[in-house]
Design a protein around this nucleic acid. Structure first.
Length: 801
RNA sequence: GCGGUCGUGGCGGAAUGGCAGACGCGCCAGACUUAGAAUCUGGUAUCUUCGAUGUGGGGGUUCAAGUCCCUUCGACCGCACCA
């Protein structure tokens, strides 16, 4: 009789053994197949791990342990994305250094993660705030700079006048400061950008060569936002002096509607306004409008109102390049400088925004596509079969043909060309904060912006007593006058350092490469190590990172590919995601709601194995699921039942009620397709079956233990050891015989006119004749005659009578 | 507005177009207990039985629809005056 199930002792025993013997530290070995499974490394916050992390990490944990049992050499690394605002803010409040706080948090995370029994490669732990790591983050930035992919540009940043602090976008939702709720204002500043737009097409094309969940793929596509259309040049001139003219380029996806253009609109920030500074008669009005637009920006533009505002530029006149009609020019804030060319040709008949504007300003509306009622609303016809009207060159053509014809006309006459644009903006690569990687550039009076050579990297953060943000929206690093002074690497003259730091997304854009050779001091990623480990076979993470981190890291990897640092342009072969764990009340877990669940408490009460089973059993892995304090009891009972199996061993018992081949197949396929809840359900059914008979063979027991081991490693290790006197880590993952998955006899459902009327027992693969004989024997038809029978072998038979 | 996901018992959720509700929670009954906890066994969609009805509503395709198509209502997520 085995002892009482004592999870505390058992879990401690195995964790101590695993971590002291370095059981999960992989070594490059060309004779073994490798497998690289990756989780999104956590941000080591002061509040520690929460159950959401457990769900996020457990999928790859299961896959990693399974792959090891299958004989793979598995790299399943862990690290910390440790630069960031919460740590910095907490450090400021408590008057400590972020370094100290970070180290403390990391320690806590490590201890918590080990208490769950995760099989991470601890020796390879990376920390983005470690100079040995960010040396290479800085190096990548420098390489990008050298190739013109990093540039400085004047832009608007979010600034809270109350806190006197520059805010990240995520801190200023809806134009309100996260901390003090006051209105955020926009300040102009020169900051760094990365030219991710240069990679837009490749980021889009690359999606077809990787295995990402459909939802991830479409979200990335939308984020990149490719749209095809044309650039058309409209000539604008001063009424008073027609020779003073400006070729205004507009971007449109609908060049076919050009005859419907009744006015032009440019963004309030458009450079043509400076060009015509003198020619615009109502300059004062225009200036005032520009000023309001600036303050309005984030706040009002978010709530897109139907009330269009704008100003007609008097003194200017434009011409439709195709029809020759004269049309007025407006500025309006519904046109964004950041997309297309910052100017549009307005077609009020067929674009609702233009229609609204035309109505507000009493402008003509021309129908050029038949079929709508443009008196009531714009007819935004997307049906490519609709017909063009009132358009001399393209009358009668359908939309598709009209688009093509118009583009060729424009190209012939040199008035425009086909053009593809992307919604994705360049990546604002800057923070005016202390706790981030310093940007490794110096400004030299003679040479301009000069990057630091590798020999001067890492450029470490100065030790600052006061690293609070400055009130003038510049980085706290600018207060450190000693640190600012530098010598220009090019000419040896005096220079000053850049003071902005990198955003939080920097380190996470390439950390997965560093795991391959975390200690290497000559390479960001050692080519030999890369050769063996690349690429990431399976990456799991949150949906919230799909449009930022996942795009950014693909971009960095593509860049590293371009400079020959890595051999593949796509870093992740497969990507899946997990749903959120909600509070028991069905709301998002938040300290302020008091509905958070700490994994430590769960482990104390139920043990790590029960927690691991429950977090994967709780529901569809991809969907959000509320934590259930009652539900975990089911997982606890299951684990206890597994424990009791070791007292039921009997090697000569009847096992016909449990098909091991079917069990292995179902569980294994479910693991591989992220269906952990049903995998556990199959194992529960199997355990219930043997429990019912009170007997289990050693083979059955070992199979169940190995299948369950990736999910509940401690208890399965313990039982396996006591039964087999061996460590389950050296066991072989079972395979199944496809021919034995279906049993010899089938209980076949019999339908009459699509309704279930009975069942017959027939041998596997029985033919229709045999099935019908069996049906007559049982008199399921009650004398009716069969007109037609639809028989699906081993599935069902449906009789039409 | 655009794009996406999804509506199934009291609850979490299962169902390659082929027996709807696997598995679990909860609940009910019984067993073991002085009693409770734990454990074990059985039951648990709806309707008054017979056998009929059931996967948000309406229509369609099919021998067969939770699953496919159209339409409608609702929820959630992402993006958003994106030209």
């Amino acid at each position: 009789m085995a002892k009482q199930y004592d999870f505390k002792t058992i879990e401690k025993k195995w964790q101590d053994l695993w971590y002291s013997t370095k059981a999960f530290e992989p070594v490059e070995d060309k004779s073994k197949k490798k497998y690289y499974s990756l989780i999104e490394f956590p941000y080591p916050s002061g509040s520690g791990l929460h159950v959401g992390h457990i769900r996020a990490f457990s999928s790859m944990e299961v896959i990693s342990r399974k792959k090891r049992l299958e004989g793979y050499n598995v790299l399943f690394p862990i690290g910390y994305d440790a630069f960031g605002l919460p740590t910095e803010n907490y450090a400021m409040q408590t008057k400590r250094h972020p370094r100290e706080v970070t180290d403390e948090n990391i320690k806590k995370f490590e201890q918590q993660l080990k208490a769950v029994g995760y099989s991470f490669a601890w020796d390879r732990t990376v920390d983005t705030t470690d100079p040995k790591f960010f040396k290479w983050t800085q190096w990548i930035f420098v390489e990008m700079f050298k190739r013109g992919l990093a540039y400085k540009s004047r832009t608007l940043i979010n600034f809270c006048p109350q806190c006197k602090v520059v805010l990240a976008n995520e801190e200023s939702q809806n134009g309100v400061c996260d901390r003090c709720d006051s209105q955020v204002i926009q300040k102009e500043k020169d900051v760094w950008f990365l030219r991710i737009r240069n990679y837009a097409e490749r980021l889009l094309q690359g999606l077809s060569s990787v295995d990402y969940s459909e939802r991830i793929r479409t979200e990335q596509q939308n984020w990149i936002g490719k749209s095809q259309g044309a650039e058309i040049v409209f000539n604008i001139a001063e009424e008073a002096d027609l020779k003073k003219n400006y070729p205004l380029t507009v971007f449109t996806t609908r060049p076919d509607t050009i005859y419907g253009v009744t006015f032009l609109v440019v963004s309030p920030e458009h450079p043509m306004l400076d060009f015509f500074a003198k020619g615009i008669k109502n300059q004062k009005e225009v200036k005032a409008y520009q000023d309001t637009a600036k303050t309005k920006k984030e706040i009002d533009r978010i709530h897109l109102s139907k009330d269009k505002t704008g100003i007609k530029l008097s003194g200017l006149v434009a011409k439709n390049p195709i029809s020759g009609t004269e049309i007025p020019v407006f500025i309006a804030d519904y046109v964004m400088m950041g997309y297309g060319s910052g100017a549009i040709m307005a077609v009020p008949g067929h674009d609702q925004r233009d229609w609204d504007f035309a109505k507000a300003f009493n402008l003509p509306i021309i129908e050029v596509i038949a079929g709508g009622d443009i008196e009531k609303e714009a007819f935004a016809c997307k049906d490519s079969n609709a017909t063009l009207v009132n358009s001399p060159l393209i009358n009668g053509l359908n939309v598709n043909d009209a688009v093509n014809k118009m583009i060729s006309v424009l190209e012939e006459r040199g008035l425009g060309k086909a053009k593809t644009d992307y919604k994705m903006k360049d990546w604002a690569f800057n923070r005016q904060r202390y706790w981030g990687e310093p940007i490794p550039i110096v400004n030299c009076a003679k040479c301009g912006q000069v990057p630091l050579p590798l020999s001067e990297l890492p450029l470490e953060l100065p030790v600052l007593k006061d690293f609070s943000p400055t009130s003038d929206a510049s980085s706290p690093l600018s207060k450190c006058t000693d640190w600012l002074k530098a010598t220009c690497p090019k000419c040896g003259g005096k220079a000053t350092r850049e003071t902005d730091t990198m955003p939080q997304w920097a380190g996470s854009s390439w950390y997965f490469l560093r795991y391959m050779s975390p200690e290497d001091s000559n390479y960001a990623v050692n080519p030999k190590a890369y050769d063996y480990w690349a690429n990431v076979d399976w990456y799991n993470g949150g949906m919230e990172h799909v449009t930022r981190h996942l795009i950014y890291s693909r971009f960095w990897n593509m860049f590293l590919y371009d400079i020959g640092a890595v051999d593949d342009s796509e870093p992740y072969k497969r990507r899946t995601y997990q749903g959120l764990i909600l509070g028991a009340d069905g709301e998002k877990m938040a300290k302020s709601r008091g509905n958070t669940v700490n994994p430590d408490d769960v482990i104390k009460a139920y043990g790590a194995d029960t927690l691991r089973v429950f977090i994967l059993f709780i529901g569809d892995y991809e969907k959000p699921a509320p934590w259930s304090p009652e539900g975990i009891k089911g997982s606890e009972r299951f684990i206890k039942r597994v424990w009791n199996l070791q007292d039921m061993i009997c090697d000569n018992c009847d096992t016909s009620d449990l098909n091991l081949d079917a069990l292995i197949k179902k569980v294994s396929e479910d693991y591989e397709s992220v269906k952990f809840n049903t995998a556990i359900a199959h194992l529960m059914t199997a355990v219930n079956t043997v429990y019912g008979r009170g007997k289990i063979t050693t083979k059955e027991l070992n199979t169940i233990l190995i299948l369950l081991n990736p999910i509940a490693p401690h208890i399965t290790s313990e039982i396996y050891e006591s039964v087999n006197k061996k460590d389950i880590l050296n066991a072989k993952y079972p395979s199944w015989d496809e021919s034995k998955v279906l049993s010899d006899t089938i209980e076949l459902p019999v339908q009459v006119l699509g309704k279930l009327k009975g069942k017959v027992v027939v041998p596997l693969n029985a033919d229709e004749k045999l099935v019908l004989e069996e049906i007559f024997k049982q008199d399921i038809l009650k004398g009716a005659t069969i007109k037609k029978a639809v028989y699906v072998k081993n599935r069902i038979i449906n009789l039409i009578v």
